[in-house]
Amino acid sequence: MLRDFIIGLGYVVRGLRLIGQPGLRRYVILPLSINIAVFTAAIYWLVRTLDAAMQRYIPQWLSWLEWLLWPLLAVGFAVAVFYTFSLIANLIAAPFTGLLAERVEQRLGGRPPSAEASLWGNLRSALLAVRVQAAALLYMLIWSIPLLLLGFVPALGIVLAPLWLVLSAWMLALGYLATPTGNHDFDFRRNRRLAAEHRALALGLGTGITALTIVPVLNFLALPAGTAAAAALWTERLSKQTNLRRSADN
């Protein structure tokens, strides 16, 4: 299990390398631009929200504590906010990330959907990608509710951050894997089942993408790099095991 987790984590580094390769860079421009816009909005909203919270809830005579609370609150909120905005960016950019995933799969010798597909076929794939990403976002919101409620229990506060990190890794894995699997007509339920069957690989991938989303500058690359990483993981491991299972069933 640990070995698979490390392998999944390593695919994020692979994704960063892939998006810099000639022939793939042009497919990175639109997802990168969308991600920069979304994360710029996320950073602005996070700073404004934390500053307003400090002004409202910290008494004037305790204002000297702000220098200590700022980094602590920023890290905690950043994990929740950035991975939420990452899924939103995935939703907005779904038609373009699908094309990037297809080209990565083609580059790695996989069998992507035909480049000669009809206009209706391309439109159908784009609509499916948006639907799958919307389902992933809804799934994340549902699972976030219990963790938000736990935040009101002081004794459980110490375990809240690790739980958010695990949820973040899992949700980002589902969101990013949905792009290459969606190219092959996987709906969200089927995509989630595939990730559950390879949980350690998926959590490794999601953990790496989570790290990208909270590291300044690198978070702008999270969407294209995460898409390329998920496409590489699908092409080299998950799709082959899925095909083997189908052959065994037949």
Rank of each mutant, 00 (worst) to 15 (best):
L100Y: 02
Q60G: 11
Y57F: 15
L68D: 00
L68M: 15
R107W: 10
L108T: 05
I7S: 11
L2I: 12
W70D: 09
Y11E: 13
A94T: 06
A41R: 08
L46M: 13
V75M: 11
I92R: 00
W70E: 07
G98S: 08
V79M: 06
A101H: 09
D51K: 01
I19Q: 04
E102F: 06
A78L: 10
R103T: 03
R17Q: 14
D4T: 00
Y83Q: 10
W70C: 00
R26P: 06
E102K: 12
E102T: 15
L50T: 07
G76Q: 12
Y11W: 14
Y57I: 05
A53K: 04
I88L: 15
R103G: 03
R107F: 13
F39Q: 11
S63V: 01
T49H: 14
Q55V: 08
L91A: 10
G8V: 05
L18S: 06
V79K: 01
L69P: 03
F5N: 03
R103F: 05
L100V: 10
L87M: 13
E102C: 09
E105V: 12
R26W: 10
R25H: 09
Q60C: 00
V28S: 05
A74R: 04
A52P: 01
R26V: 10
M54L: 13
S33M: 14
R17K: 12
L69R: 00
V81T: 03
I34R: 02
R26I: 01
G20N: 10
R14S: 11
L65V: 09
L18A: 12
T49D: 15
L99A: 12
V47P: 08
L108C: 11
A42V: 01
S63C: 01
F77R: 01
I88Q: 03
A89D: 04
L100C: 11
S33K: 02
F5D: 06
A52V: 00
T40N: 02
F5G: 05
R26G: 12
R56G: 10
G8H: 04
G23P: 05
G98N: 05
N35T: 04
T40E: 08
N90V: 03
F96C: 03
G10F: 08
A101W: 05
